[in-house]
Amino acid sequence: MSGHDGRTVISDTAQKAPGNSATDDVRISFKRWLIKNLRNPYVVFTSLIQPVIFFVLFVEVFGAIAGSALAEALGPDISYVTYLSPAIIVMSTLSSAATSGIGLVDDMEEGMFEKMLVSPVNRSAMFFGKVLSEVTRIVVQTLLILLLGYLLLVIKNGAAFDQYLRTGVAGIVGVVFVTVIFGGAFMAYSNIVALVTRDQEATIMFANLLTFPLLFISSAFLPLGVLPKWIRTVAVLNPITYGVDGVRAIMLGRDVMTVVDVTAFSGIWNTVVPASIVLVGCNVILGTVAIRLLRHAAGSKVQ
């Protein structure tokens, strides 16, 4: 150790660490996860590259045949790019949110979870910081997909922005809001799987298992009206339907929900309000379970 005497290390040892405020702890955890996510090629791929691939492919492949179904369900003036944007947004949110638990399992396997528990860090703040970093990721990728969709539409039809997102700038906020509450529910789900299985592979498997089948039995890719009856039935119970419909109503500027018929409000609110209620409900239920499991995992009670 190259003659270093290290005397300064513990010259004043009999003291205790000062500790932080809870907001400091949130910031510390948030920053750590942000750095980790940015360094993880898998995260960068699912957030930035995968949406582009799917968006372009779906538009090129399904766009060619979806026209008549769209016209039948929503009228003639809606491009498939606009119609598909909510599906791509929701799909990417799902991919990101459903991997939230992987980070947690990773931390448990690497001993970082325990390292945090034995430090004076505020435990809720630590978890909240992680959630916040994932929400940030979802917000950023949603904005990027909106931009990408708009570019695709411009290339295809040379349309103006409010033809793409009919509710304008306020609509962007609305889309982000629905996306975040949608993502929250699946982040909770992913953490539940992670905490129950304590296994990375299982967490990834459950995430994938859910993502694709659920996307197809929803209104994501085609209007429910043109899909088989059993899909329409299952779609009512599928949270993805509510996420997609919520975002789509905001983008198209009209009531698009067909699974539940709400007429108490006007226009898009007949979709956005019930969709938000369902999604917030999912957050509350799954979030409660996740927090309970997390408390249990972090607790010092003998098991």
Binding site: D24, I28, R32, I35, R39, M112, E114, S119
Partner: peptide, 23 residues
């Protein structure tokens, strides 16, 4: 079990520990 954040450098790991303990 060795408990370090493998995605961070040694300096960043130590920085994280400093922050956790409010150094």
């Amino acid at each position: 079990e060795t408990s370090i954040d493998r995605e961070l450098t040694p300096r960043e790991n130590l920085q994280l520990a400093c922050k956790l303990y409010g150094v």
